[in-house]
Structures are given as C-alpha cells and as structure tokens.
Design a protein around this nucleic acid. Structure first.
Length: 690
DNA sequence: TTTTCAAACCTTTTT
DNA sequence: GGTTTGAAAA
C-alpha cells in the first residue's frame, strides 16, 4: 500500500495519532495520501470503518474517494462517513430532529427557496425590493449564518436604518423557516453546532464514534465548519487536515484560509507534513504558477518541485476579441486532436460562466464534442422545480414556499387575490397555509395533496411521481398546450422519472425522505457521460482538484481575472491571484493562456487590459495571433430557418424536436437526450409533417 | 386570471 | 446579450 508513496507522503499516512496538518501543494498527490491513509487505518485495524469521518469539498469528490477506498479495502468502505460538510450536517439533523425541535419530515430549502422566502417577507413588511435588494439580503443572511451570527446577536451590530430593516427580515426569515419545518443550506452546519452546544452528551456520543476525522480542502472551510470540526474532535485529537492556502478560492462563501494557518495554534501538539513534490506539471508550468503566487503576502513556505522535464513553453496569445479567442482555442484543439491528443485531456477554463457561450458556439461549429460542467441546471427548470415542490409539499405540508409555488400550477383559478386572502386567514389563526385551506377551490387542492400523501406511503417513488404528474393535472395541462415548449417540459418530467428509477435501482426502495435529502444537496445533474472523448469547459472554481494534459486559461484580462468586483480590495485581489494559480496548476503538459484586445461585456464592447497576472508570470514571449474564421463550412447552410417545436431528424440521434433557437445554436431534444447543434448543420434535416 | 410585451436588471465564483 | 419583472391587454 505504501510502496507507491514518496517519503513525505508515507510520513503523512503513517502518522495516525494526534493532530496532523498536511500542507499539500497543487498536484502533490493529496487525494492519494488521504485515501491511502484511510485504507491504512483500516488495514492496521486502528479504526473501524464507522469510526472514520472524512469530509470533502464536493459530493463528487466524496463519491470518488469512497470509490477509490473501496478499491483498496472492499465494501467496508460503505460504512464510512465520507461526505461534504453539508451532507454530514443532514445526517446529524436527521438523527436528532426532536432535540432540534423539528418534525421528522423537515425539508431543506435550496438557494432559490430561500430567496423566495426573503421576497415574500419583504412584501409582507411592505418593503420596496428596489431599496432592499432581496438577493443581497439573502446573501447577507447566509454570511451571518456562516459566521455564527444569529438574528438575535445581529442586533448588537445594527448601525443604520438599513441594518435595522435587515435584522427584522433576518429574524422573520428564521421564524418562517422554522414554522415551515424547514432548514436552509447554512442551517445544515448551524443546527448541528446548536445541537452540540445544547446537548453535550449528544456531542460526546459523536466524539466517541468519530475517532478519526479527516478533512480535505481545509483552506476552504468557513467559520461554522471550523467550529463544527473543533467540537467534534475528541481527547485523542485524531484529526488530520489537508490543504493549501494558495488554493483557497471560496472567500465569497465565507471560507477562511487562516483556518489552515492557525491549525498549529488550535492544536499545539500537531505534527506537520509538507508535500512539495509535484507529480502533475512540467517545470515550465510550475515556474509560471510559482511566479504568480509569489506576489501574495501571507503563506506557508513551500516550494513545489518536479523531476519532470521543462516541457513545452507556456504560451500566451493575444486575440482581437472573444470570437477570435474562441476560434483560436478551437483551432488549436483541432490541431491537438489531429496530432492524436485525447479530447478528455483538454480543458478550457474561464472566470465567469458567461464566457462559456462563445466557446460553445465555436466548438459546436467545428463539430468537436464537448461538455460544460456545472452549467446545465436540470433541477432549475420550471417544470422540475414545480414537480419537486409537489414532492416537498407532499412530504412536509408545512412548507409554505412550495405550497405557494404550486397551488395554482396548473391553474386552479387561485390568483393573487385569493392567495392574499388565504395568507390573511393563515396569519389570523397563526397556521401554516396548508392548514388554512378552506374555500372550495382550495379544498380541491388540499385533497389532492392529502391523497398523494397517503399514496406516498404505499407506492414506490417513481409511481408517486407518476401519480403526481397525473392527478395534479400537470401532465394534462402540458399535453393540452400542444406546443413544442410543452413537449420539452413533458420530456424533462419523463427524464425526472428516469432519475428516480435510477435511484431505486441503485438503492432498492427509496423513501421520499431519502430522495429529497439526497437531491437537495446535488447541484449538478447526475452525469451519465457516455464514454466518448470530449473537451471540458468549466469555471476555474469548478476545476479545482482536477487536472488535464492541455489547459486553456482564457480571458486573462483585468476586470475578468482579477474580476472587476475584486479590484481595490487587497484580500479579494489575493483571492483572484490564488484563483489564477489554481487555473495554471491544472495543466500537466501544455498551458495556453489567452487574452483579447476588446471584448463584449454587459452587452457593450470594451477595450480590454491584459491581466496584471500576465506581467507577474514574467514570460519571455507573448504572441499576437490572427485566426481565419473557418465558418463558411460546407456542412452549414445558413439560409435555413428553424423554429421552436419543429420536428427534425439527425443522422446520428434520429428524430427530435427543436427546443430552443438562440443565435446560431439549435437545442434539440431526442428520445434519449438533449443535444445542441449549430444552425443549418447538414446532419440535421427537417421532417415534413403529415 | 392569464397572456403578452417591453423595460429593467444583470454577472463573479457555489456547497 | 440574455433573463426576469412589471404593466397593460385579452
């Protein structure tokens, strides 16, 4: 097990007692160390699987770690708690809902539920949303919570009329959440802390259970997570944290890289291992990354080195605008492909999601396969949110936010006026909305939910979804509409059913409870990636922890990276620099950096300034490039017009319907999945309606 | 009550 | 350039 590790890595694995801080530079094999360490604990019988608590940053990372450990130790791996902080929080709350005075069927509000709730409160308080931006308020509530500031304690910080308003909304928000028998995302961390403060005996139980605590990406923990960890650590202090303050990039979410710098103060007995050997990148790439990060003030001393060769020079290219930039990247990728490169080894990294569009268009035009990570918001679609609201309400009838979303969806002739009336009645009798349903129309709805609720105890999840679609009238409404849009929505709902089916196949019978808990923490659609090579497009944030042979870091300009909003604030500027560092260190063999001379921003063309980070890289060459647009492709007939709803047939995917026509891109839904094409591409032909 | 269309808003990054 | 919100018509 230890054979494949270097001396430092071995040391990190073999220190099993007491606090351990592992400073792991980019590409130094920290995931390998963590997984080996866990396997080692089990193999040496230092810990039982259930005594291990391993916290990762994303659900994806958790799954991957579990899989790797399973590979080493077998199915014992399934008994370990490997999850994100948030999923761990769900477990704790579910095991202690009574002590936290929730009912068993509490639900989790996602970000948009929270926002809806804030908006609702503003309305009730007759506050103008233009004066008091709901999104800002929501974010402020969130950052308070992540810093363990409650609505009550915030009173101390009130400094202005604005603060006063905020405090009252915050307080009301908490009250309403509670009344809805719901928790928000931040509560998943807060409630366990609350529990442990109130019930030391319960905390002691968990401390006894989790004898080994391991935390990945420790530099990205926030105050709440930090406190939670400190509480959980028992006398043995078998806590191992791994991180790299140079890669802390979630400050906007309250993460505090000082947690890692302060670890030694928190645990004076701690031992420290520094992993400095980089297994990922060539010397040239490391040099460039090190040059940049040097400009940040506070950091633990470490110097990444590699025994790899210098490798190819890092390339910086200047392009006229974002279209040329995309064209250049696409052509370069095409060349790489022709030289035999695997597309799975190629990534395009950008600062903001908005930048992805031009790349998508251009790559599509070239006919190169690609995937955009974290951009397809399946669960954000209206019909899916509606269906989820039904499920949430069925599960927890106190959930006013879900009720309001669907009481008139499909139309039951309960408009704003009737709703205002309903809310007034509920308020008068201090009941939740569901309990206050009394008029004839309202009772029809109430009966529907009650029936489905009953049903939820009797049938499988997929059947429940089916019955909900049927009995709510959602399906009928969409079928009646007989439009393309409606047809797509129907398909999405079918897709949802296949998700529940997959769940059932994987876990056997799954309760509504488990399903909702699982799904509210999933931000990405389950990726059913066929095993085809494709280019990866994603934000730099999403790329953390990943590596690619060829990396294109695009839009290396002032106001983009570093982002405009972070100019002027030194702390934020340093975070942007770390972000840049993360981007550069994703590359194994070849790193391409681009910036433009002008770019469309906010719908306006503006002159761009090369990022200060480019100067900091201290490179020899920077080449200005012009690329020919190879758009006049034989494969594309620009003159054909397409409209949403038209039936088409593709050479590859068979029959489909056009879901969306935007600019040059057609989105087409096929029987199996939804694909995008460039408008007029020869492989797509119209189908004549009979 | 629902639909439609124009104006306003917007974009940092996300568990 | 795209999406959400608001007011006015149907």
């Amino acid at each position: 097990m230890l054979e494949k590790l270097n001396e430092q890595q071995k040391k990190a694995v073999q220190i099993t007692k007491g606090p351990l801080l592992i400073i792991a530079g980019a590409g130094s094999g920290k995931t390998k160390v963590l997984t080996t360490k866990i396997a080692y604990l089990l193999a040496e019988e230092l810990a039982l699987p259930q005594e291990i608590l391993a916290i990762t940053f994303t659900n994806k990372a958790a799954k991957e770690m579990q899989m790797r450990i399973r590979g080493m130790v077998g199915k014992k791996a399934n008994e370990m708690q490997i999850s994100t902080f948030h999923s761990f929080g769900v477990r704790i709350i579910r095991e202690n809902y009574t002590r936290l005075s929730y009912s068993r069927n509490f639900t989790i509000f996602d970000a948009s539920d929270s926002l809806t709730l804030v908006k609702k409160i503003l309305k009730e308080k007759n506050l103008d949303p233009k004066m008091h931006n709901p999104k800002n308020i929501k974010n402020r509530i969130s950052s308070c919570k992540n810093n363990l500031v409650t609505a009550e304690t915030f009173k101390k910080y009130i400094n202005s009329y604005h603060d006063e308003i905020f405090q009252s909304v915050f307080a009301k928000y908490e009250e309403k959440l509670k009344k809805s028998n719901a928790v928000d995302f931040d509560d998943l961390l807060l409630k366990p802390i609350e529990l442990f403060q109130k019930y030391p005996a319960v905390l002691a139980e968990y401390q006894k259970l989790f004898r080994y605590i391991l935390i990945d990406e420790y530099q990205d923990t926030n105050e709440a997570q930090y406190v939670l960890v400190k509480k959980l650590v028992n006398k043995e202090q078998n806590i191992c944290v791994v991180g790299d303050e140079s890669q802390s990039i979630y400050g906007f979410r309250g993460s505090n890289y000082r947690n890692i710098l302060n670890f030694e103060k928190d645990f004076p007995k701690c031992q420290q291992v520094v992993l400095e050997k980089n297994y990922r990148s060539t010397q040239n790439i490391l040099d460039v990354a090190n040059q940049v990060i040097k400009y940040n003030a506070r950091k633990k001393e470490k110097k990444l080195w590699t025994d790899k060769e210098a490798g190819a020079e890092v390339v910086v290219n200047v392009l006229l605008d974002e279209h040329q930039e995309a064209e250049y990247v696409a052509q370069t990728i095409n060349d790489l492909k022709n030289q035999g490169a695997d597309l799975n080894e190629i990534a395009i990294l950008y600062r903001t999601n908005a930048q992805s569009r031009v790349f998508e268009e251009t790559i599509l035009r070239k006919g190169l396969p690609y995937r955009i990570v974290g951009n397809v918001h399946f669960y954000h679609r209206k019909e899916i949110k509606d269906l989820l609201a039904y499920l949430k309400l069925i599960y927890n009838v106190n959930d006013d936010v879900s009720l309001l979303r669907i009481i008139n969806e499909p139309s039951r002739k309960i408009g704003p006026k009737s709703l205002a009336d309903l809310e007034q009645r509920a308020q008068a009798s201090n009941e939740v909305l569901f309990a206050a349903l009394t008029t004839e129309k309202e009772l029809t709805f109430k009966n529907l939910i009650t029936e489905l609720r009953q049903l939820s105890n009797e049938v499988s999840l997929t059947e429940l979804v089916e019955e909900t679609l049927q009995r709510s009238g959602m399906r009928e409404e969409l079928e009646k509409e007989n439009s393309a849009k409606a047809e797509v929505r129907l398909e999405n709902l079918e897709e949802f059913k296949s998700i529940t089916k997959d769940f059932e196949e994987k876990y056997g019978i799954i309760s509504l409870e488990d399903f909702l808990a699982e799904i509210s923490l999933v931000t990405d659609v389950v990726e059913y990636e066929e095993d085809i090579p494709q280019i990866t497009l994603m934000t730099i944030h999403a790329a953390k922890g990943l590596e690619f042979k060829y990396v294109f870091v695009v839009g290396m300009e002032e106001d983009l990276l570093p982002h405009a909003n972070s100019q002027g604030d030194l702390e934020e500027l340093e975070e942007e620099r770390r972000l840049c560092y993360v981007a550069l260190t994703r590359a194994c063999e070849q790193l391409y950096i681009t910036y433009t001379k002008n770019r469309q921003l906010f719908g306006r063309r503006t002159l761009s300034i090369p990022s200060r980070f480019i100067d900091e890289m201290n490179l020899m060459t920077c080449e200005e490039v012009t690329v020919n647009n190879t758009n006049s492709d034989d494969n594309i007939d620009e003159d054909i017009e397409f409209t949403v709803g038209e039936k088409v047939v593709s050479d590859k995917y068979g029959q489909g319907i056009i879901v969306e026509v935007s600019n040059d891109i057609l989105t087409i839904a096929f029987a199996k999945d939804v694909k995008k094409f460039i408008k007029g591409h020869k492989s797509i032909k119209k189908v004549k309606e009979e």
